[in-house]
Write a protein that binds this DNA or RNA. Sequence first.
DNA 1: TATAAACTATGACGCAGCGTCAATGTCAAG
DNA 2: CTTGACATTGACGCTGCGTCATAGTTTATA
Lengths: 251, 251
Amino acid sequence: MVYTVKQLADLAGVSARTLHYYDEIGLLKPAAHGENGYRYYDDAAVLRLQQILFFRELDFSLNEIKDLIDRPGFDVTSALEAHKVALQRRVERLKRLIHTVDNTLLHLKGEKEMSKRQLFEAFSEEQQAEYEKEALQMYDPAVVKTSNKKWKACTAAEKQRIGDEGNAIYTDILLAMPQGASSSEAQAGVERWRRHIEYFWVPNEDQLLGLANGYNDDPRFKANFDKIDPHLAEFMREAVKVYIKSKKKYA
Amino acid sequence: MVYTVKQLADLAGVSARTLHYYDEIGLLKPAAHGENGYRYYDDAAVLRLQQILFFRELDFSLNEIKDLIDRPGFDVTSALEAHKVALQRRVERLKRLIHTVDNTLLHLKGEKEMSKRQLFEAFSEEQQAEYEKEALQMYDPAVVKTSNKKWKACTAAEKQRIGDEGNAIYTDILLAMPQGASSSEAQAGVERWRRHIEYFWVPNEDQLLGLANGYNDDPRFKANFDKIDPHLAEFMREAVKVYIKSKKKYA
DNA sequence: TATAAACTATGACGCAGCGTCAATGTCAAG
DNA sequence: CTTGACATTGACGCTGCGTCATAGTTTATA
């Protein structure tokens, strides 16, 4: 059998352009060129194209495919095994992304319910509280409920006060920056911060550090801190490290 | 705070080129341009960049990101939900690919063991038998073992005979093509084919049709059939359909 | 202060795998 | 002989930058 471009294209379910391209890069050459310049494919080309499409389905690149079916004695098995590993890594990555999307969605919904349920506008501090609850989720979902209850039980005025308190604390810590992370000013700030956090949640030392790390690593936390000062998050992390060390020493 | 290109780039962990590009497509514009043409970014730009990178991590396209953070009141929640679905689809697809790779690897390894263990060279018919075992795997792995045992128990001469028998059957069916899929010649061929298959495995009618489908849809099956005739696989599918219908009618 | 090192700018090509015109030639049917 | 369906090559476009190339600017050092 002999096939023109369109015939082979329809047969294999690809476009004519694709066959042109495969010819261009030397992946699938027609059996013969007519004097009119037309491409004519034979049955061997059909088989080759089927192999190509098989590997293409598996997300091999056209170059890899060329190696796989051209090089005689090319190690197809280990190529497939390597490819499998690559595919698995992609799956893992995608799963992490989905998880992050889920978290973000949870956060957004929480925020919405809040702002709908009360007159209280979504202050950035309230957002911050949301974030903190989320971070906390990584430890114990049971605690989240308690935290949520506490927050809901607050009046708008109380919330306002809590938000202001948070702001004040961060400003205090900011002012302690020139004195260094181990200065008594900074450490006092961390102490106040801890008690502020404890309004929602009572973390142990490790969790406290985890939260400070989150302030640096989670872009949403980070963004809020950067609004105050671009080095605040990092400074807090250092200060918290010092804080914990001294706590553990005297424990 | 004000940042030059490199400062912001280092801060955010991206390249200067990336910032140039984001400026070019209007995704992140510097706060000011110096008289020397230099770009100068401010803290707002830092925050915006952080948001951009957050969504970029989630595999949003730069265009989508622009919409997400520029359009006021753009529905971020449903965008995220749609994105999640897209991610999930990608995961499903990758899992299928991995499964296919696994099957192919199994097949390749089986082939290798075969050719190593015996003097018997890897005839294309033996390959075909491998494929058939693989197709069968989709139904019941327990049956595979039986099939394998049977095959291994064969002498080389027996294998040769079986392979030849397969070839003869396919040739017979090929010769029946002009008479049509429902012709008695074709149906007799299917009957012989069935008994031939049953040497390895006893399929029910549905499984028989599944196998005939595999001859068309699996490129490796297809390739072998196309060597005989490009329309044989399709013809067999039709013939098997007819065969099954008549079987069920009289059942 | 002269010069070198480090930074800045714009412009352009390259990558993968084709889709999509565009301009032009060829073949089969009515 | 026309029409329409096919064929050809050539070229740009898409995504998200990496990577020169060329040229001007700022900063550090001798």
